[in-house]
Amino acid sequence: MAHRTVAVLLNCSSRSNRAAQQRARLEALMKESGLDADLLCAEHGRLLGELARSAARAPYDLLVAGGGDGTVSTVAAAIAGTDRTLGVLPLGTVNHFAKYLGLPLALEGAVRTLVEGRRVQVDVGEVNGHVFVNNSTLGIYPGIVRAREALRERRGLNRWIALALSTLAGLGRHERVRLRLLLDGQELQLSTPFMFIANNDFKLGDLDLARQGPLGPGELGVCVAHAESRRASARLLASALAGRIQRASDFSVLRTSALRVEAPRRRLRVAADGEVLELSPPLCYRTRPAALRVLVPPSSRLGAGAGRREDLPARRAALEG
Results as ranks from 00 to 15, higher is better:
residue 75 V to E: 02
residue 123 D to C: 10
residue 96 H to I: 10
residue 121 Q to C: 15
residue 128 N to A: 06
residue 109 G to N: 09
residue 107 L to D: 03
residue 108 E to A: 13
residue 76 A to Y: 00
residue 99 K to G: 11
residue 108 E to M: 08
residue 83 D to L: 14
residue 81 G to C: 11
residue 78 A to E: 01
residue 78 A to Y: 00
residue 78 A to H: 00
residue 68 G to W: 02
residue 116 E to R: 15
residue 64 V to N: 01
residue 73 S to G: 15
residue 128 N to K: 07
residue 74 T to Q: 11
residue 126 E to M: 13
residue 79 I to E: 06
residue 71 T to K: 09
residue 108 E to R: 12
residue 93 T to D: 05
residue 97 F to K: 01
residue 121 Q to G: 13
residue 62 L to Y: 02
residue 96 H to C: 10
residue 78 A to Q: 03
residue 91 L to E: 03
residue 93 T to W: 08
residue 115 V to A: 13
residue 70 G to L: 13
residue 98 A to L: 03
residue 126 E to W: 08
residue 72 V to K: 00
residue 69 D to T: 07
residue 100 Y to V: 14
residue 94 V to Y: 05
residue 96 H to V: 08
residue 69 D to Q: 13
residue 110 A to E: 05
residue 65 A to Y: 02
residue 70 G to R: 08
residue 89 L to N: 00
residue 62 L to V: 04
residue 105 L to V: 05
residue 61 D to H: 14
residue 87 G to W: 00
residue 62 L to S: 01
residue 76 A to W: 01
residue 111 V to F: 01
residue 98 A to K: 00
residue 99 K to E: 14
residue 112 R to I: 06
residue 63 L to M: 08
residue 71 T to W: 10
residue 120 V to L: 07
residue 126 E to L: 12
residue 81 G to M: 10
residue 67 G to F: 03
residue 65 A to I: 09
residue 73 S to K: 09
residue 58 A to G: 15
residue 68 G to L: 06
residue 87 G to H: 02
residue 100 Y to H: 15
residue 120 V to D: 03
residue 75 V to H: 02
residue 118 R to T: 09
residue 72 V to T: 04
residue 83 D to M: 13
residue 105 L to G: 08
residue 119 R to W: 12
residue 111 V to D: 02
residue 72 V to H: 02
